[in-house]
Nucleic acid binder design. Structure first.
Lengths: 136, 136
DNA sequence: TTTATTGCGTAACGGTATAACGTGTGCAAT
DNA sequence: ATTGCACACGTTATACCGTTACGCAATAAA
């Protein structure tokens, strides 16, 4: 109930491997880091990773962090609501906290509409320091 | 009064050239596009562009679009308020509209604080279709 | 059976960004 | 004046990110 395991999608072998790597990581991973981790499983080329990532993102199981050029497993039960995800990225430990906020989603929609802009997706990535790192 | 020309910073030759390229462009430019445009002015290597861009971003004259890996001249009179800029990026024409919204800035701050996160900067980039392209 | 779709593997490539080196210039403090 | 420092600059090399183009195999649909 806390994972995406039961969204009904069934993953291919490569997709499963990439998903596994991201799920067991404790922070965002770059495509090339994933590639390196999966060499022993037969991965040889970036394209194998990118193809799997494309699908996983499409399924909503993985998010792409634009400001990091990296990918992270979605920690939410339901990410069907697109464009609502906000990431808090710690500059110190590199981890990403995923949150949603309806007020921001609503306001972004309003701002876009006000500019006569047909909104499709939103990227919201905040940089700063997480609680653990600030305490340390 | 509508440009940054009088912010008091004075730019070096390379910074001026890069700023000129971005100012006369009608959309975001990648670093390598800028490099190509400035070959005749003596530019030879990416680093010349990146160094200038770093400074221009630091001065607040230029914004970096994370989701595009590109750069755009700031069109606001005052961007001293950092972390408040929102970009509306048209998927069709590639242009970027720059807006600010205090409500979003405030709410982002609140969300970060709620997560015990010390917010430094915010990246907010919306994708969709601009009015001109939708009409076309 | 034929065709279309989808996933997979490989190689080569192009776009993005930085590291590491050294040079020159201006300027302040001796 | 010369030493020391900070800063911009130029060059080469390299690392990192992502895609194009090709072909093969398995499966699903007509």
């Amino acid at each position: 109930m806390t994972s995406h395991a039961q969204t009904g999608v069934d993953l291919t072998k490569n997709q499963t491997l990439v998903m596994g790597a991201l799920s067991s990581a404790d922070g965002p991973l770059s495509a090339y880091t994933i590639l390196d981790q999966l060499r022993d499983d037969g991965f040889r080329a970036p394209l194998q990773v990118y193809r799997a990532l494309d699908k996983l993102v499409e399924f909503g199981l993985v998010h792409r962090l634009e400001s990091l050029n990296a990918f992270v497993a979605c920690r939410h039960t339901e990410c069907g609501d697109r464009g609502q995800t906000i990431f808090l990225i710690c500059e110190t430990c590199g981890k990403a906290i995923e949150v949603t906020d309806k007020a921001i989603a609503r306001r972004l929609k309003t701002v876009a509409t006000g500019a006569l802009f047909a909104l499709q997706t939103a990227t919201v990535e905040l940089r700063g320091t997480c609680d653990a790192c600030r305490a340390a």
